[in-house]
Structure formats: C-alpha cells, structure tokens
Computed example of a mutant assay.
Amino acid sequence: MFRRLGLSVYPDNSVFEEDLAYISFAQMQGFERIFMSMLEVTEGKQAVATKFSKIITAAKKLGYEVILDIAPNIFDELGISYDDLSFFAELGADGLRLDAGFDGNKEATLSFNPHGLIIELNMSNDVAYLDNILTYEANKPFIYGCHNFYPQAGSALPLDFFNACSKRFKKYGIRTAAFVSSQVATGGPWDINDGLPTLEMHRQLPIEVQAKHLFATGLIDDVIIGNAYASEEELIALGQLNRYQIEFTLDFLPTVNPIEREIALDNQHFRRGDITSQMVRSTQVRKAYKESNPKHDHDSIFQRGDIVIGNDEFGKYKNELQIVLTPHSDTRKNKIGSIKETELVLLDYVLPWTKFRFK
C-alpha cells in the first residue's frame, strides 16, 4: 500500500489564514491528508458548518484527503444523527474518524453510507474491535484505522502494545495511520500539550526519526503530525523522507576516503539473507569496487551503529560495507562513521534481504 504524509489542523483553536498558509506549504512538500478535529465544537451547527467548510474547501483545492475526528457528543451538540451523515458530506470531508466505538454492526452499516464517506476506526486498543466489525460484512475499502495521540507526557503507547494493536488492522489490509509530534508546535485540541505522538518513545525525538520508525515497522501507511504548527524545517525534512526503505543518517569521520564515501552513499544496500548477529553485511559493493583501500581508524572496538568497510588487508572482502550490531574489533575493517544515535532503533528493522540506504 502506498504511504502518505499528513498533518493536523484545529479550526476551533486557530485562525483560517494561518491554517491555509500551513497546509499550502505542506502540500508543496508532498503532504496528502489532513486530520481535522471536531471534538471541541461548541458554537452551534451553522457556525461550525461555516468555519469547517471554509478550511475543508481550501484543503480539497490543494488535493488533500480530509478526515474529521468526531465523538458521540458532537452529534448531540450539532443535533444530527449517526444515521444521516449528510452534514459532514456537505462540509466536503472525505471521512470520519470515530473516536469512540459502537457494537460492530453500527460501524459496518456506516461504511455503506450513501455519501461514500470513509469510516476511520480507533486503532489504539488491543481487542477484536475490527474483527467484530468485519464479521458484520463492512464495506472494507471504506474502512481505515488510525491510532490516538497522547498530549500528556508519559501517557502514549509503548512499542510492544502499539505493534499488537497495529497488527490487528494490518493483517486485513486496512489502511493505517499514526501520529508523530513536532518539537516546536504548541497547537492541539486540549489545554495540555506535551507533544502529540502515538508512541511515548517518540515524544522527544526529531520528527523525521519518528516517521522513519513508524514506516520501518511496516505497520503504518500514513504518518500524521499531531500538533500544529510544525516548522517549515520539519515539514521539509518529512517531505524528503524515503517512505519505502530505511535511509540512515550517516555521520562520517573526517578520515573517510572518496571510495568509502561513494560506497556508502551511492549504492543500494541490502542485508544478506544468511544473516549474522554481529553485523549487517552489504556484500554486493565489494564486487563493484576493486580500488585500493588503505587502513585507517581500524584498531578500536567498533560499537553498535558504526559503519565499517573492509580495507586492503581483508582479501576478497575488501570494500564490503557492514553495520556493526554487537561490539567487536577487526583491524581489517576501517570505521568510516556512525549512524546518528537517535536512529539506532531502526537497526531492529534491518532483516534478511532488507533494503537500506545512507544519506
């Protein structure tokens, strides 16, 4: 399934002109979907319609898919029924995210709404929620899944629980989404905002590393920025992200030579299928590069995340590139640099035959 970038806007807590500038710049960076919260509406049906239709219309002109986040109290607030979703269709929305669930049959019935609205389900529960809905013969192409975000520090999901929840959706081929958090944005739905990630381990990480991790799990199709507004630098970094394979940020040593730099940066790497626990081996490059590679930075203990390349003393393995997984020493290898420390978590996703690159 193709992968997308998304962002969030909060019309009840923002100014239209600022929202428009934000989504316009993000669209130029390749963003394609918008999460738009309706959980805070209090102004009545007509005022809500005017406010939301304005930003949704602008978003649709930019090519965005717009999903509205709603809860049962919104229907009471607006005086509308779950059996008639025309209000949201008339706003121009593409779908509704149900913050709270029903009995399974209700969600399945909603997926056949005459307006073709997508029904997005809450993924952040490790229960057979989706299975129940699908047993009621839901309109599967119109079912999405999306995790929650968590404004309070310490309250977001641990990785193992996130994996279990996500696998329940991914096994059925449902489009999935999760949130990353800008390190500068302060906007959100509530008065507490310690960042808006899905995973607690992401809360203090650079936003592009959060996104790399979510894509690397193979469980998430859409990565959405939870808080607003992310900086232009963050939007650009996400726009430049390789969504389909891990691309490690490599901090070179000043002693790296031109051949080693070319081997690292200018080649498609993949891990050998017959793996070892000591290192990730990219072996094809040694067949293409026969040039001499004198020794340098070869006599220390290599640490996890170090990048090494075989030197002239390594015989047939000269110019083979390796990523160190467990500490070891070998004077036949030159250390050329290290993977950025915040990205070391990505090493867990380099499996047999996994493709990867460096930048």
Rank of each mutant, 00 (worst) to 15 (best):
S124A: 10
I119D: 01
L85D: 08
F2D: 14
I133P: 00
L121Q: 15
S231F: 09
F314M: 08
N122R: 08
T135N: 15
F52Y: 15
P294W: 05
E313N: 14
L347T: 03
R33W: 13
L121F: 11
I23N: 03
G188V: 03
G92S: 06
L5A: 03
D297W: 08
G188P: 03
R203T: 04
K287C: 10
S14G: 09
L98H: 10
Y229R: 09
F25Q: 05
C146T: 10
L78W: 12
S155R: 02
G305H: 07
S37R: 05
E341A: 14
A93V: 07
E40C: 11
A185C: 08
S86T: 12
D312E: 13
Y10C: 05
D222F: 10
G116C: 01
P254S: 14
R168A: 02
L159H: 11
K106F: 13
R175W: 11
T276L: 14
D160A: 13
D221W: 08
L134P: 00
A89D: 06
N267D: 09
I339K: 01
P141S: 02
I133R: 05
G6N: 01
K359Y: 13
N113G: 04
P114T: 03
D94E: 06
F302S: 00
V48A: 14
L347P: 00
D221Y: 06
D99K: 05
N293G: 03
V223E: 00
A164M: 04
G101K: 10
E208R: 12
I118G: 04
P254T: 09
G44H: 06
I225K: 04
F52N: 00
K60D: 07
V15K: 14
Q29K: 15
K335N: 10
L344W: 09
K54N: 11
Y10M: 04
N193V: 08
M123F: 12
L325Q: 12
I34P: 03
N257W: 07
H147P: 04
L214R: 02
V324Q: 05
D103P: 05
A21E: 15
E18A: 04
P254F: 13
V256L: 10
G95C: 02
D12V: 00
F87P: 01
I301S: 08
R304F: 08
D69Q: 13
V280C: 00
R33A: 11
